[in-house]
Design a protein around this nucleic acid. Structure first.
Length: 376
DNA sequence: TATTCGTGGCC
DNA sequence: TGGCCAAGAAT
């Protein structure tokens, strides 16, 4: 059996590489700031989702310095909707460390990169290889899939990671290590896909053990994951006479850390609706909105009952909360789940987030099959 | 080593 | 329709 030759992958890459906003032209040096920013955004996030955020970030924060001196609120607002918000906090912290301790330049060293906030083993290797040409092995989910198929690795993930890393490191070429890293990811994203891989188009088809046995779709082996339990809660949309909405900021760590939200209850496995009125942020004529808001986080699904109340113009915000004008809601760091809540309570707020979900039709909502809201 | 941490798209 | 998946990191 022929071994997988990195040169064959690079030949394939030169012909089929994806053109992405953060990539340099062939033969040109990639900008470390762009590489870093894109790598952080791409952690567990699809290319399609990242593209508009990447462009917006570059416009608002053209370089490390501008990001370092920006208020944290501005960074969280620009990140709102992308998810995994600790990335945004670490991104900001990392920019400040680079500005203060490294003269505004990313270190051209894998170990030094690894020490920066938000940069783990994969991202350090990716930046080292792509931005600085260091022969580092950037092992992400794509590479794990490609390599585990290539050698038909029976050991399940994540235990197999060290082994996969060794095999990958041994293949990294001294020249073009950045292209090799990106080629591996392009191969995983376009050919060696999780389902129905296009083996006939793969430069490593002949070398691939899993393919030879017709078992490519069964790799990588994976340990089974823990079951998720649904949680319930209440959310309160207080609308002042001038249209302003009562908001607060979540604690800086943990779920949706540092993001804005409407006041609400804890999210628990058991939440009797009779409890809701006790969790309201203030006294008012709370009205329960028909239906519920559903949202799915990585480790649990959530169902929120939404309450709405109108407050008069003089109403003051309770301790630790604030009113935000209707026309300023878009400037708040509201995560998607809160945009759903606002859209549910305020017809004028429109569709949640900025995605292609399109218009909701409250009147024609079906009884079942709704992801975001169902009657109850 | 195992959890925690978002979101949207896909079949 | 629900589970899986996407350029992982921090704890």
């Amino acid at each position: 059996m022929p071994a997988a030759d990195p040169a064959d992958l690079l030949v394939w890459y030169d012909r089929h590489r994806r053109r992405l906003p953060w990539r340099a032209m062939p033969g040109e040096r990639a900008d470390p700031y762009r590489v870093w920013l894109s790598e952080i955004m791409l952690q567990q996030t699809t290319v399609q989702a990242v593209k508009p955020y990447f462009e917006r970030f570059l416009t608002r924060f053209p370089d490390v310095e501008s990001l370092a001196v920006a208020p944290q609120d501005a960074v969280m607002q620009a990140w709102a909707g992308l998810g995994y918000y600790s990335r945004a906090r670490n991104l900001h912290a990392c920019a400040q460390v680079v500005a203060r301790d490294h003269g505004g330049r990313f270190p051209a060293d894998e170990t030094a990169l690894r020490a920066l906030p938000g940069i783990g083993a994969y991202t350090a290797a990716a930046i080292a290889a792509i931005a600085f040409g260091i022969p580092a092995a950037a092992v992400d989910g794509n590479v794990e899939r490609v390599v585990s198929r290539l050698i038909a690795l029976e050991e399940p993930l994540p235990a197999a990671k060290p082994h996969i890393r060794e095999v990958t490191q041994a293949m990294v070429p001294q020249a073009r290590s950045g292209d090799f890293a990106q080629a591996m990811m392009d191969l995983g994203a376009t050919i060696c896909t999780p389902r129905r891989p296009a083996c006939a188009l793969c430069p490593w088809m002949v070398a691939c053990v899993a393919r030879r046995e017709g078992l490519q779709e069964s790799f990588p082996r994976k340990a089974k994951k823990a079951p998720r339990q649904i949680r319930y809660g209440a959310a309160f949309v207080a609308e002042r006479a001038d249209g302003a909405i009562l908001l607060r900021t979540r604690p800086s760590s943990g779920l949706l850390g540092g993001m804005a939200e409407v006041p609400g209850s804890d999210w628990r496995a058991d939440y009797p609706l009779s409890q809701a009125i006790l969790d309201a942020p203030c006294e008012a004529r709370w009205r329960r909105m028909p239906g519920i808001v559903r949202h799915v986080f990585t480790h649990f699904p959530l169902e929120l009952t939404v309450f709405h109340a109108r407050l008069d113009r003089q109403a003051g915000a309770p301790e630790g909360m604030r009113f935000t004008g209707a026309d300023e809601l878009a400037d708040e760091a509201l995560p998607s789940v809160m945009r759903k809540v606002l859209a549910h309570a305020l017809p004028q707020f429109g569709a949640p987030a900025d995605k292609g979900g399109g218009k909701r039709e409250p009147a024609s909502r079906k009884r079942s099959g709704k992801k975001d809201a169902v009657e109850k």
